[in-house]
Design a protein around this nucleic acid. Structure first.
Lengths: 110, 110
DNA sequence: TTTATTAATCGTATATTTGCGATATAAGAT
DNA sequence: ATCTTATATCGCAAATATACGATTAATAAA
């Protein structure tokens, strides 16, 4: 049981879910917030601000990179992360395409 | 280990994460899409369209209700679900507050 | 009252996520 | 060459999520 049914859904459905999944943890929200605030950010600054161990923050950053919500470079001891706004724009587009209210005051239900 | 650190983050950070978490699964994206398309929807119609068992769909609906992305009523054998746009609006607000690009072309990094 | 029908809940197996300490890696400083 | 600093990865324990079949609950239909 509990097999993975991802292939049964459309590419867009999976992409939207993957984006949402990346921001579905308060630590990752806080990380994104911090990067957005500073416009560019090093890992150490994020670790200082969060109530988590350095290794945990590093793992969250990895997930954000994988989902392409942030871009980053690391050269030895120095890192640099910033928001990947391209992905945010893509998310917004699909989000609106799927869920935007067509009729603003439909009393059919609820 | 692996304790829950949710209390260490702000209410808004947790709320945004909870919203994102609700749409972080392709099945839930598909359910929301289906409800948004039809404007109002019964459970059976959703089960028909999805590649999942009825009990699984019911669990996903429960999560969407808990996160208040949908509203719903069930009277015995008939159900009715629709999008809770209030929550979507709240999400959009916090999302923009946290992540909106202030400087559209900052070449500082990446 | 019995029989369908529809949806929620329970129990359970498996998969994934979360978090940390320990360790590795890579570059700069001494 | 060694020490320090910053970041990533590994290994593990605990928690949570996913999915299903079986069952329950509630109403409608016969």
């Amino acid at each position: 049981m509990a097999q993975n049914k991802k292939e049964e859904f459309t590419k867009k459905e999976n992409e939207l879910a993957a984006f949402a999944n990346a921001i579905s943890h308060p630590a990752r929200v806080a990380i994104l917030k911090e990067i957005a605030k500073r416009e560019t950010c090093i890992c150490g600054e994020i670790v200082e601000v969060l109530p988590l161990a350095q290794s945990t923050v590093s793992q969250h950053l990895k997930e954000l990179l994988k989902a392409e919500l942030i871009k980053g470079t690391v050269d030895g001891t120095s890192s640099c992360y910033c928001i990947n706004y391209k992905t945010f724009e893509k998310f917004e587009k699909t989000f609106n395409e799927f869920f935007t209210k067509t009729n603003s005051n439909n009393p059919k239900c609820c």
